[in-house]
Design a protein around this nucleic acid. Structure first.
Ligand SMILES: NC(=O)c1ccc[n+]([C@@H]2O[C@H](COP(=O)([O-])OP(=O)(O)OC[C@H]3O[C@@H](n4cnc5c(N)ncnc54)[C@H](O)[C@@H]3O)[C@@H](O)[C@H]2O)c1
Ligand SMILES: NC(=O)c1ccc[n+]([C@@H]2O[C@H](COP(=O)([O-])OP(=O)(O)OC[C@H]3O[C@@H](n4cnc5c(N)ncnc54)[C@H](O)[C@@H]3O)[C@@H](O)[C@H]2O)c1
Lengths: 213, 213
DNA sequence: GTGCAATTGTTAAAACTTTAACATTTGAAT
DNA sequence: ATTCAAATGTTAAAGTTTTAACAATTGCAC
């Protein structure tokens, strides 16, 4: 299942944000240059894998020398799509929605949260972190008018697919879903399910298996 | 039969919580019996994979018939470690910590959040969702005394590893980490990094690659 | 300049995961 | 009772991902 000219397969896609984090760390330590060996050791993966991964994007390093931290970081930023800014909205201003809206680093990372939406009349008209909460019925038009690219879903799980459908009809490009259910949409809309419970159950599963030894 | 040699590899481990969700859905629809074909179609995977997966745990189905939803669900609950109750604490009561503490379904899923911890003196002494916030300096003793099994880390990322180290010294069994950094510990402590940013960047990466067509 | 150590890019092998194939089991219809 | 369709368990093949190996390139010491 090819995803275009960049050949980013699933396992690499999951490693990319980690590369980004570790390279940022090196940058903050003012390290100018690194090697597949050093990076791999820090990240707990083989140097072979690091080289193989970076090679998917063409010659990012220099033989005999290594990789320039800044240049590599820039390239990966771009591949991750972090050189663009994104117009974002959040549907559902409960626990999770409120928390994400309050995350003040979002803007500095390129994510402009333009508005929040909810059904609860007590919330409509209020604001969180300076961002207004509107009636969910106005979401579709808002997405269309403002050209919103990313929708974050924080509604109860039985309302999640319906909320996603509205976003998709309005022309959203990507959906970040926190409801405890898989969402589906047409191929041109990217959907990332961030099921928190799945992650927690993975933890308890491993805790249980370890006890068997 | 004991679970002594459960052979749960990474990809299967990531699918298990999904099986759990979809089986729960079937149960709620009062479906008594299902097949690898039906389950696979719902989940978007092949029936072969479903059978192969379930076979890791021994004969969960019956040839010619299929799988009993309830029995299968029970078995997967157990494998995921969801038949036990867990004593849980949260370190860092900011946006995310507050949100998780307020998630009222946690207890019904078997996770008893006993206490919250923070450095902020304004927070210490307050409570969230009926759960007290204590001084982070008291966390170590609390874990020891109460036999806390799971620690959730919601502190800023530059304090995350130090916080994890304290939990580990106190004898915690598992750590669920929301700070935007990988945490490390000894092999007998299970650590699940739930880096939200990684998930978001995966989304933007796919949005960008799709545009290449 | 030459030789050497460091390190990438690239190819090949190994390991792992998924899919396909099929023999076997079951229950129901006749 | 026999046959058939449905469905699992299991084995084999195909596909994917990771690791290992090594030739090529670079900078540095002498
Ligand atoms: N909070 C957590 O710690 C946590 C953990 C795991 C999973 N989740 C999942 O995240 C999702 C949200 O959880 P939460 O704790 O924030 O829930 P919540 O109940 O606190 O918030 C849900 C919000 O959505 C609003 N809402 C309901 N229907 C809506 C609709 N049709 N359109 C717009 N808004 C609507 C509600 O008014 C409410 O404000 C749930 O699916 C939950 O299963 C949450
Ligand atoms: N909130 C989000 O939407 C979001 C999104 C992505 C990543 N994150 C990550 O999650 C983590 C927490 O984010 P947040 O938004 O909840 O932060 P926050 O600043 O709202 O909360 C952090 C809390 O930790 C407390 N704290 C600080 N040092 C502590 C220590 N040593 N011991 C105990 N408590 C301490 C602070 O007093 C504060 O209450 C961060 O690492 C952040 O990068 C958050």
């Amino acid at each position: 299942m090819s995803r275009g000219k960049l050949n980013v397969r699933e396992p690499l896609l999951r490693r990319l944000p980690r590369y980004y984090r570790y390279l940022n760390e090196l940058k903050n330590m003012e390290v100018k240059r690194t090697s597949s060996l050093e990076l791999g050791e820090r990240m707990g993966i083989t140097s072979s894998q690091v080289r193989q991964d970076f090679n998917c994007f063409g010659g990012l390093g220099q033989q005999g020398i290594g990789y320039e931290v800044n240049a590599l970081l820039g390239r990966i930023r771009k591949i991750l799509g972090l050189n663009s800014r994104y117009k974002v909205i959040i549907a559902g201003v409960g626990n999770i929605g409120h928390s994400l809206a309050s995350y003040s680093e979002a803007a500095s990372e390129g994510f402009d949260i333009l508005a929040l939406f909810d059904v609860n009349p007590r919330l409509i008209g209020c604001s969180v972190n300076g961002i207004m909460i509107y009636d969910i019925d106005d979401m579709k038009e808002f997405i269309r008018e403002k050209g919103v690219e990313i929708g974050i879903i924080c509604v109860p799980k039985d309302r999640a697919q319906a909320t996603a459908d509205i976003m998709i009809e309005a022309g959203i490009k990507g959906i970040w879903n926190f409801a405890d259910v898989d969402l589906y949409g047409p191929a041109e809309v990217v959907i990332e399910n961030a099921c928190l419970n799945d992650s927690l159950y993975t933890l308890t599963c491993r805790m249980n298996i370890l006890q068997c030894f």
